[in-house]
């Protein structure tokens, strides 16, 4: 671990709540509103941390500890995400598998603390969460395989280092397909439109929000922060595919990288603004579609 990636980790930790702000601002602009401040999420977290706690009557220790586990697992997952040309602090062969499963751990505890309330709403949300996550899992893995084959590297940082943009090669087309697929994955995993609408007011249609319906106070702060980091992880993964190879200095490269991450947040905002929600029953089909997309990319790589 060197100074560069310490810096990058710190920037991720600091900037991740900003992503929500960016998205919301973009959405507001599309709606013709002024929108909340960019730093609104920071204010929210700070306020939540100061509040008292209200636990549901039915809840047990799981409800309280679950979000802590979630935070721990996303933080550890973050360690394996490279920052463009700057390698991740933790990089080893097959690290993307650990990354995927650490995110699995966070899901495991999100779902369990939701179920701990015993409420039908939370149960419903948990059920949807595990469903869509399970369907989305192959997209990530196949994508990573595609990259591994493409670059001949088995660690995320290695892949990012080796990835080459060549406009005319079919491999580039494959990467474009992969970006599209992972973008869909990002929307799913982070409960954005068209999969989920974080701003809806109807519990029956929510996924992630309904799972934390009874969570409040500092606990909610933790949950919000953890989802920020999760969004950062996915955005960073996609950003890694898009970051151009420049012979610039480390700080310039880091700047470009963070810029791309923020651009992705903008893209999410745009998507949220111009698209409607897909019906819940259609989502698995969409996810199978993204897997098919990656598979196509894989076949293209082989053909190329």
């Amino acid at each position: 671990m060197n100074a560069n990636n310490v810096m990058m980790i710190l920037s991720a930790l600091l900037l991740s709540p900003l992503l929500f702000g960016v998205i919301n601002r973009v959405k507001a602009m599309f709606a013709g509103r002024k929108g909340s401040p960019l730093l609104q999420t920071y204010f929210d977290i700070a306020k939540l941390m100061k509040k008292g706690m209200v636990y549901g009557n039915t809840t047990s220790l799981m409800f309280q500890l679950g979000p802590v586990f979630v935070l721990v697992s996303v933080l550890l997952a973050l360690l394996m995400v490279p920052f463009g040309p700057i390698a991740a602090p933790l990089s080893f062969q097959g690290d993307f598998i650990l990354l995927a499963y650490l995110l699995g751990v966070s899901r495991f505890f999100t779902v369990l603390s939701a179920l701990d309330t015993g409420s039908a709403f939370e149960g419903m949300g948990a059920s949807r969460e595990v469903q869509f996550a399970a369907m989305g899992e192959p997209t990530f893995m196949l994508g990573a395989l595609l990259l591994a084959i493409h670059t001949g590297e088995m660690s995320l940082s290695g892949m990012v280092r080796e990835i080459q943009f060549d406009v005319l090669s079919p491999a580039t087309a494959a990467v474009v397909l992969l970006v599209a697929a992972w973008m869909m994955l990002l929307l799913t995993e982070n409960s954005r439109i068209p999969v989920d609408d974080p701003n809806t007011h109807l519990e029956l249609t929510m996924i992630h929000e309904v799972m934390v319906l009874d969570t409040g106070g500092p606990l909610m702060g933790i949950v919000t922060y953890a989802s920020g980091i999760k969004l950062w992880i996915f955005s960073a993964l996609i950003a890694n595919l898009l970051v151009p190879t420049l012979s610039a200095g480390a700080s310039a490269q880091a700047g470009i990288f963070v810029g791309i991450v923020l651009l992705i947040a903008v893209a999410v905002g745009v998507i949220e603004s111009i698209m409607g929600r897909v019906r819940l029953r259609q989502i698995p089909k969409v996810l199978v579609g993204t897997t098919a997309l990656v598979a196509t990319a894989l076949i293209m790589t082989l053909a190329g």
Partner: peptide
């Protein structure tokens, strides 16, 4: 590799669903 990764990933996701179900339904609520 494609078959292996796809199936293991899918199985993993489903296993998570199955075990959160048991854990949640038996011990929680």
């Amino acid at each position: 590799a494609a078959v292996l990764l796809t199936s293991l990933a899918l199985i993993g996701g489903l296993a998570l669903a199955a075990f959160t179900k048991v854990g949640g339904m038996v011990f929680l609520g």
